[in-house]
Write a protein that binds this DNA or RNA. Structure first.
Length: 662
RNA sequence: GCCCUUGUAGCUCAGUUGGCAGAGCACUUCCUUGGUAAGGAAGAGGUCACCGGUUCGAUCCCGGUCAAGGGCUCCA
């Protein structure tokens, strides 16, 4: 890549036209043919700032393709600078970070074999095979070594090699994983990057030099299978993250710390919401009174909405004969997620992993007319699924959970309308919890499927039409549908932008057939109904965990387990405090009185830590005037409020299901 | 299930190079009767996760089991 700039006599031919696109602002420059991005950048530096400043460009996009800055430009092109501000820029930056990590690993542990080291959402990792586990101590040493390399400001250069040579080269360097990668690429040439004594197989691009790396932090080490295959060797994955400046890195670490503070497992214990106990078993939840109080509110709200939307409630058992699960096909398709059957009087019974077969049997319990449809059965159905021990996680991944499940049986001409109604119900329900941003996926027909192509097409188009009607933006996940029908998955985004899978709407061509469901049509013949599975919150346990983190434990008043705490200043106000609590209770407000022989400051502090929305302080003055002094969770104070005004305020806020005021 | 880390009072954590275990908070009692995020004192509380081994002696060393945490794989 050296001699493209050598002279031609024709001046015009030596010039190319470069269109610079800098955050949407374009300018066109005439440049010598073969100018490198680096030179181009210094030429444009007047506008973009110092080329080596922390947030300055470190790579570029030439006609949409990612390139290193030193790449010569040999024909007219549109060039876009790559900085840390863009997602692609972050990827390049952190990819270089991964290389720095690998270089440090090879320096400190020469015998280590490198696998892969890509950027990820909030950082990067490198998978490494080494004879002994890395310790936190090793991470500190690696960080020091990385910083040495950054200090040295080694140039990072790109080279190409025929694949055969590259295989030879990496074999010689004893990097078997790299060799395997090159062989699998099946391309004639591969590229590698060099920085000082370190060489890594890589497509690039990368930073121009190691000194451009600002701040880097290694976070953890974990096991990861080579190529994600549990039959392949377990490697060690070192996770890290990097930013252009120490401040930006610190801000990120602070955010991680904040997320840890609102971890639902931590808050669940501190706020006495739920527990998971060894004597009961992993993945099985105890809902404590305060958690249960919140669940009661969620369920009551859920129930009311479903009544309004024409659902009928059903209850079904927790176990059933194994034969039921054979008929439904779960034994064939879902066995590894089911608890083993138990034998009772010679027959095998199975703990239910799903509610659907029961709902089908209720449908089937008598003949249905086309006039009866749609039929909507809803149940808060508790199911048990066997999950491998390593995947359990607080409330978010458990072995026993309650689905807000429903099954809709309808005629083909009703599918679209029903889906649309489900979507409306979903956004209403989730919106009440402050979830208004969704990532929606429409999963289409997979390779293996049941049902006819016409059915699939009709159902898929019903799903997409319904989404469009509801003005919900979605992405298509081609081939990701379940074998029995297409589906919509809705992920909600919480305050921190994290997406959580909650709602799902699935069309099912399989179960109605397995159970030979039918309805009598207008033509007096039997027809197969279409079945729709749907859950809005998914699992109450999981949804509760999401809510805890979403609200950081400061539940909006309508959900708060204790909505108000009456705080008498001294024992002299005990009776008055009781009379206030009495009036609140009469309005269904969840109120407690802190009668302890403690100072008001302590009572307020503890109510605050329990994130109780309203603290009702009553002392001698209030008692005399028959008022209260209100303190909100936000710290706001309202003095001398009449009890009637207090009642109105609380009742209204609860009825409106207002947002969290934490 | 796999890799690594962890398991000491209800909670958060000290600690012992192997010699009958400690703090703060919480709890109980007493004093204090208070004005918007911690008043004071005393007391009670632990087979140091469980099982086994080494040892005169194990909470500590070794092995196993269970559970939790961070990941991988899988998913509501």
């Amino acid at each position: 890549m050296s001699s493209t700039r050598q002279g031609s006599s024709d001046h015009a031919q030596d010039q190319i036209s470069i269109t610079l696109n800098d955050h949407g602002a374009t300018q066109t420059l005439t440049c010598p043919r073969g100018i490198t991005g680096t030179d181009l950048l210094s030429r444009a530096a007047g506008k973009t700032g110092t080329p080596s400043a922390p947030f300055a460009p470190f790579a570029m996009k030439v006609n949409g393709e990612l390139k290193d800055l030193p790449t010569p430009l040999i024909q007219n092109a549109t060039v876009e600078w790559l900085t840390f501000d863009s997602p692609e820029g972050k990827e390049v930056y952190r990819h270089s970070s991964a290389h720095l990590l690998a270089q440090a690993v090879k320096r400190l542990f020469p015998g280590a074999k490198l696998a892969i080291g890509p950027p990820i959402e909030e950082g990067f990792y490198y998978d490494i095979d080494y004879e002994r586990p890395f310790t936190p101590d090793d991470l500190a040493k690696l960080e020091a070594a990385i910083n040495d390399v950054i200090q040295a400001d080694l140039p990072i250069t790109r080279h190409e090699l025929p694949s055969a040579k590259a295989v030879e080269f990496f074999t010689q360097r004893q990097e078997p994983y790299k060799v395997e990668l090159i062989r699998d690429f099946q391309v004639p040439t591969v590229s590698y990057y060099e920085q000082g004594d370190f060489i890594d197989l890589c497509e690039g691009p990368h930073l121009p030099s190691t000194g451009r790396m600002g701040a880097i932090k290694l976070l953890s080490v974990a096991g990861a299978y080579w190529r994600g295959d549990e039959k392949k060797p377990m490697l060690q994955r070192i996770y890290g993250t990097s930013f252009p400046t120490a401040d930006a890195l610190q801000a990120h670490l602070t955010r991680l710390e904040q997320l840890k503070q609102r971890d639902h497992r931590k808050l669940g214990r501190e706020l006495d919401l739920f527990s998971i106990q060894e004597t009961i078993g992993p993945g099985l939840i105890l809902w404590h009174p305060k958690g249960a109080a919140i669940r009661q509110q969620i369920e009551a709200f859920w129930k009311r909405l479903h009544e309004e939307h024409g659902y009928q409630f059903v209850y079904t058992p927790h176990v059933a004969r194994l034969d039921l699960w054979k008929t439904s096909g779960h034994v064939d398709f879902y066995r590894e997620n089911m608890f083993p059957p138990m034998e009772i009087e010679g027959a095998d019974y199975e703990l239910k992993p799903m509610n659907c077969p029961f709902h089908l049997l209720i449908y089937q319990s008598h003949l249905r007319s086309y006039r009866d449809l749609p039929i909507r059965f809803a149940e808060l159905g508790t199911v048990y699924r066997f999950e491998r021990s390593g995947v359990l996680h607080g409330l978010l991944r458990v072995r026993g959970f309650t689905q807000d499940d429903a099954h809709i049986f309808c005629r083909p001409d009703q599918v679209e309308e029903e889906i649309s109604r489900v979507l409306e119900l979903t956004t209403t329900l989730l919106g009440a919890f402050g979830f208004h941003d969704y990532d929606i996926y429409l999963s289409t027909r997979p390779e293996h499927y049941v049902g006819t192509l016409e059915h699939w097409e009709a159902a898929t188009s019903a799903l997409s039409t319904a989404l469009t009607r509801r003005r919900l933006a979605y992405q298509i996940d081609p081939g990701e549908g379940v074998f029995y029908g297409p589906k919509i998955d809705i992920k909600v985004k919480d305050l921190f932008g994290r997406a959580w899978q909650c709602a799902t709407v699935q069309v099912d061509f399989n179960l109605p057939e397995r159970f030979t469901l039918a309805y009598r049509g207008e033509d007096s013949r039997e027809h197969a109904p279409i079945m729709i599975h749907r859950a809005l919150m998914g699992s109450l346990e999981r949804f509760f965990g999401i809510l805890i983190e979403h609200y950081g434990g400061a539940f909006p008043t309508w959900l708060a387990p204790v909505q108000a705490m009456v705080i008498p200043i001294s024992e002299a106000q005990a009776a008055y405090a009781e009379s206030i609590a009495e009036r609140l209770r009469a309005r269904q407000i969840r109120v407690e009185i802190d009668r302890r022989n403690e100072k008001m400051g302590l009572k307020i502090r503890e109510a605050q830590l329990q994130k109780i929305p309203y603290m009702i302080v009553v002392g001698g003055r209030e008692q005399e005037q028959q008022t209260v002094s209100l303190r909100l969770r936000s710290g706001e104070q309202i003095a001398a409020l009449s009890v009637d005004a207090l009642l109105d305020r609380l009742s209204r806020e609860i009825a409106e299901r207002g947002p969290s005021t934490a």
